[in-house]
Design a protein around this nucleic acid. Structure first.
Lengths: 222, 222
DNA sequence: GTCTATAATGAGATAGAC
DNA sequence: GTCTATCTCATTATAGAC
């Protein structure tokens, strides 16, 4: 009897987890495509193949499911980026990391998660980029603060790589790098359209190469 | 009689125009702050001090009022940017315009409209920047194509300024400049926060100076 | 041109059966 | 944990009086 009951619980828990995952995946996709206000609980229910009441049972409210979607992958992505930086640092035995390596260490984890880890990650990264583009007055932006530690770590390495540069120049340079990165992750197609197909930010290696070429020069400007 | 009637018409037309302007201003502000889906006709009616039915009378639907808001200022802003470029060109007597002048000619009209021409223009520019950040799949992005001619004209001047550079490098460089500009106009505060107040994109002259320093170097990268 | 009133639908959220 | 049914309120949009 005890084992029966516990097995039923296990099955239910498993089913529950699968349901929650389906709901979160659908929410993630819809928020990435249409934003918070452009997505209704009915849309989520339809895409996830469940009922509205079930979503409320599992998550409580629209705000909470949004938070859950954002929080679900943040630790992994954060650690991925910190790991990327760490690898570059240990590879250079604690000497300052060259600028082009630093730029790649910053961009590659984002671009790869965006393009190579399936639709779930792609939607999550696009959602993050969307949040980063909101003005500071938005309530959502506090969500973005999770990645503060990542940016601080990279800023620190940029300072080590450029010991003679003014701090302000490093802040501006890193800011320019981030604005480009955010735009990559939003899939805006600005570059593709203006170059009439000659250039595209959809090839990761080319994108990183162009950033290295352009931004190492910018960072070393007097 | 005839003059009476025509004066009444005039008065009504004037009142109508004022009402329309009040409604458009309110819509512009709300769309810039909360986006299309985050803004309701009720919000617009409340902020403009009119009735919902009046908005429908003047504009027909939410989609149409959005279009009207976007179209209202586009010609003027477009001509302002083209004029800025034209001034730089004639000032150099049709010789290639130096890179830093070109960068300023691109940024200054946007930044000034954003900061110095009142809340209406500020909201409009923020709205544009928001549209530019939407992914290409969005229906709204076609609105942004109005400014294609501006970008083409600037790209052309960049090519003249850098006769030895590959076309692809020019496209990438101009793209990087645009991603920075878009982020300025969105008021994201990323730079202010990461630099802990040491740097800010809210000072136009400093912003242009930093862009000139950084991007002229980037553009001339081999 | 502007108002009141209301239709028609969609939204977020909950109750209670199974 | 999942379902049906429903509540309450906000939403877009229209009809008709003045």
């Amino acid at each position: 009897m005890a084992s029966d009951s516990s097995e039923i619980v296990k099955t239910d828990q498993k089913r529950s987890l699968e349901t929650k995952k389906r709901i979160l995946d659908a929410t993630e996709q819809l928020f990435a495509q249409h934003g918070f206000y452009g997505t209704s609980m009915r849309d989520i229910a339809a895409l996830s193949g469940s009922r509205i009441s079930l979503i409320y049972y599992h998550f409580g409210s629209k705000d909470k499911i949004f938070q859950t979607v954002v929080d679900r992958r943040s630790e992994e992505h954060k650690n991925h980026m910190l790991g990327s930086l760490h690898n570059a640092v240990v590879l250079h035995e604690d000497a300052p990391v060259p600028l082009d390596i630093l730029i790649e260490a910053y961009l590659r984890p984002c671009l790869e998660r965006h393009q190579c880890h399936g639709p779930g990650w792609r939607n999550y990264i696009r959602l993050l980029a969307h949040l980063a583009s909101e003005s500071a007055s938005s309530d959502y932006q506090k969500t973005f603060f999770t990645y503060d530690v990542v940016n601080k770590a990279f800023l620190n390495e940029f300072k080590r790589a450029l010991p003679d540069a003014k701090d302000s120049h490093i802040y501006w340079g890193f800011y320019f790098l981030q604005t480009a990165n955010i735009n990559f992750l939003l899939d805006t197609q600005i570059l593709d359209m203006q170059s009439e197909g000659q250039c595209s930010a959809s090839d990761i290696d080319i994108t990183i190469e162009q950033c290295q070429r352009f931004f190492t020069r910018g960072f070393t400007a007097p």
